[in-house]
Write a protein that binds this DNA or RNA. Structure first.
Lengths: 227, 227, 227, 227
DNA sequence: TATGAATGAGCGTTCATTCAT
DNA sequence: TATGAATGAACGCTCATTCAT
């Protein structure tokens, strides 16, 4: 990731090490200042991409927000696109880790699915900028990167789906609707959170997570179908 | 709407009449050619905005695709933004009309909600470009236009929600989850269709609509809660 | 030539018409001002490319020298490269025309070759900027354009060579050295003029042309070889 | 030469010693690896400058090709310009040495001129990259360096010319054309080799050298002028 | 000797929009 | 109604060079 794609240059714009051995940890600055340049760029970019969209955010704005110069940015990232690609990397890695933990945990499958469903809501709300970027800016990635992201996404969906099929095999979930359609159905709802959730809304993230999980589990209830 | 926001004269770039009394209906051309200039621009813009995104589509590309010149475009539309605003107008008008018809029709509320839920899926798939633009390009509208679109959207959601609350009052739908949360939940799924639906997929639009409606109705089933 | 290579744009950066039907011929300005924008750009570019080299000449400098804006330049030329390509076009066209006239004229072949040889010197000196650009900036053209230029160049050389082979067949020129090597030999000398000729030198262009032609004809003299 | 032109200290970026007492000759590597850093830089630069032109070659590419870092380059060379100046140094030194040897050798002047003329062709072909750079990149040198190179070049030309005037004085060469014009004429042909010579061509470098020398000597033949 | 992060000025190019015709 | 030349500001990106280590 973030590997330079430029011609012969072997020393610039390579993968950005987020925690280099720079003298950033010296005791002479607050934590914020001590953050590495790539990290500062990534978080500035995340905020701005979510706020104004990828195309409307200029490299100049990003580097100004991060307090560095353009040259520094291009030292760490091959391009503006690369910055977006790194944001995606981070999002996908984080979500996959959480889901894997829950899926691998103990307990009845309905419990695990419920927890996964609620958790993805809570963590999406906790990283609303990421979610905004994720579902709005995918088409601005390079075709190659899009394929990669979609492949990662598919692995994520498949793990989630495996919880549903497991429950369907056990008979605790209905099989009225194909499991993969249920997955798309649910993640649509989750991605959509970024368009309506407001921190000052009536419900807490946990409450919304609980409601969403409830809706999913209820929709999968094996009881007699609606009249 | 589509009214120019520019300082000066009010004589150009007014709201674009889609069926003006232009010499477009003369008997000298087939129907396709006879389409009015604003319409051709609007459909070219819709296709291109969906394909490449608003910011990545240049005015030159739009007018080339529509077979007109820039001057002509600026004669009918105040700006590129105005073109996007018009696309939104059209989408919203279309969806609202359909929902209003179904909501006002006869029959039990579960029937009407089920039909509305399935119909919005089918019509979203039938206009996937519109849906793509809708959920991806809202932030490129002017702030004023965004407020307007959101207000329209809210009216739409409220009509949909009224079907749910009607059922909850009647007791045919559970009230475990607040009705407006259910609406956001469902329309997230619907908007998401544009990111995964493929015409060559295993399910027809009608089947997907039926499944989605089923999931919604099942989630609202008043039966004993999930253990 | 100078045809825009950009995506969908059908109306910008097309072949630059050097004498458009613009109101440039109105009697309200001196001849210099009345020159068309593309022509002004082309002559500014020629001068600057010869003076500082292609890569060291910025688009800004060109448009400043031509008294127009960048946007105007990109309206007429697809790129800075296209500007260079147009300069080449002009050079090649001019030289080919002159040679064709001389080659097709009456008289003994030695006369015609002598006239052609002298004329190419005189016209190269008359357009030293062109010559400087020609032999120094070819590698900055696109690969496709380079092929095109080389093909034109080859046609030019072949016409010149045909005069030599005609004389060799008639026996008025020696055939000690292959005709195409003679052509490369001679045009090397001619291109080199741009690196040493100074207007304040001891010899006039005509004198230099006469001397060069003399050297060529003497080198081709069929007399007994040098001892 | 290669002296830093920067304001500050004179301690870094001095003239690059090509065979320094660096630990390069240690027995731990083959000859290729043992080449000194400045030499590796110079040969990488020569190749790249000839291939892509001076302005299109970045310092990064040079140091990558030489397998060193930027800091190392700036340790040995004051600037990128200095690297080019050094390349010129090397070329001029080499050619001057060869010509001096031939000019100082025994034998009739026609022999010596013929050998010099053929040798400069062969050695130019043997170092085509040098020749390409020489006639294409002179204007990228600093004004001071250009003067210096031109002075060296003039000395070279004057030595070559002295062979011609010697022959003219002896009567073995015609004096129809001024000797210095003959020199410019001939070296134009020689420099031009880099634009058309191909290793897979029909003639060997020796054959081309012989032909070129022949053309020069024939052009100087004192026999009766062409009718 | 050597590193490589960082600078900062400048580059070629794009593009929504205007306006005389 | 419609044209298309022209504007001008902004864009993503490059790169020779510096300097603390």
């Amino acid at each position: 990731m973030a590997v330079g794609t430029r011609g012969g240059s072997g020393s610039t714009a390579r993968s950005a090490p987020l925690s280099p051995a720079t003298p950033a940890d010296r005791a002479d600055g607050p934590a914020a200042d001590a953050e590495t340049v790539p990290r500062r760029l990534l978080s500035a970019a995340t905020r701005l991409f979510a706020e104004k969209g990828f195309d409307r955010t200029s490299v100049q704005e990003i580097v100004d927000a991060a307090g560095v110069t353009k040259g520094a940015m291009y030292h760490y990232f091959a391009s503006k696109d690369d910055l977006l690609a790194e944001v995606y990397e981070r999002i996908l890695r984080m979500q996959m880790t959480r889901l894997e933990e829950i899926a691998a945990s103990e307990g009845p499958v309905a419990d695990r699915l419920g927890r996964a469903a609620a958790d993805v809501v809570v963590s999406t709300i906790a990283n609303l900028d990421d979610a905004t970027i994720f579902f709005r800016s995918m088409h601005q990635l390079s075709a190659a990167k899009q394929r990669e992201v979609r492949a990662d996404r598919r692995r994520y969906h498949e793990l989630f789906r495996s919880l549903i099929t497991e429950g369907q095999r056990e008979g605790v979930f209905a099989a009225r609707v194909p499991a993969d359609l249920v997955v798309d159905f649910y993640f649509g709802s989750v991605h959509h959170l970024s368009t309506w959730y407001r921190a000052d809304g009536a419900l807490t993230p946990d409450e919304i997570g609980a409601h969403y999980a409830r809706l999913l589990l209820d929709a999968l209830r094996p009881a007699p179908a609606h009249p």
